[in-house]
């Protein structure tokens, strides 16, 4: 029995798309798990950052249906600590962008509670719009 992993053209295409938008090479990832161990928001995610990296490496588009890259707060801890030098925050951003560029927004401006609109600092709103809307 062969252990060879066979990726379809579609898989390769997806990985390349993420590489292109992020400017990173996701296949450098060796699945050490440092990102997941470092991530302050990992408890809120459905899959860990290293799982996310693995799915992208395999070109598995199902990664787009996970919460992980939306929960990411772009704190750059994974980026700073990745022993392979991958800017994982940029990989997350690429996944967000793939969704947002299809005009699928993560938040609806209308749904920001009125109470929050009164107290939230501009920096939070501006940042959230850039991360969660296309």
């Amino acid at each position: 029995m062969s252990n060879k992993l066979i990726l379809s053209d579609k898989n390769v295409e997806f990985t390349e798309k993420v590489n292109e938008i992020s400017g990173e090479v996701v296949t450098l990832c060796e699945q050490c798990g440092t990102c997941s161990g470092s991530c302050p928001l990992v408890a809120e995610m459905d899959i860990t950052p290293s799982n996310m990296m693995r799915l992208v490496e395999l070109g598995d588009e199902e990664v787009l249906d996970t919460k992980t890259f939306w929960v990411c707060a772009s704190c750059f801890t994974c980026t700073t600590r990745c022993p392979r030098g991958i800017d994982i925050a940029k990989v997350g951003e690429a996944l967000r962008q793939i969704k947002l560029r299809k005009a699928i927004d993560r938040i609806d401006i209308k749904n920001i509670a009125e109470e929050d609109r009164k107290i939230l600092p501009q920096v939070a709103i501006v940042a959230a719009f850039r991360k969660f809307t296309g």
Binding site: P40, A73, T77, A127
Partner: peptide, 18 residues
């Protein structure tokens, strides 16, 4: 450690726990 940043707009509970 990150405070949760702009996630405050989408999910306040994350901020509270961090």
């Amino acid at each position: 450690r990150c405070c949760g940043s702009y996630q405050v707009v989408s999910d306040k509970d994350i901020i509270t726990s961090l």
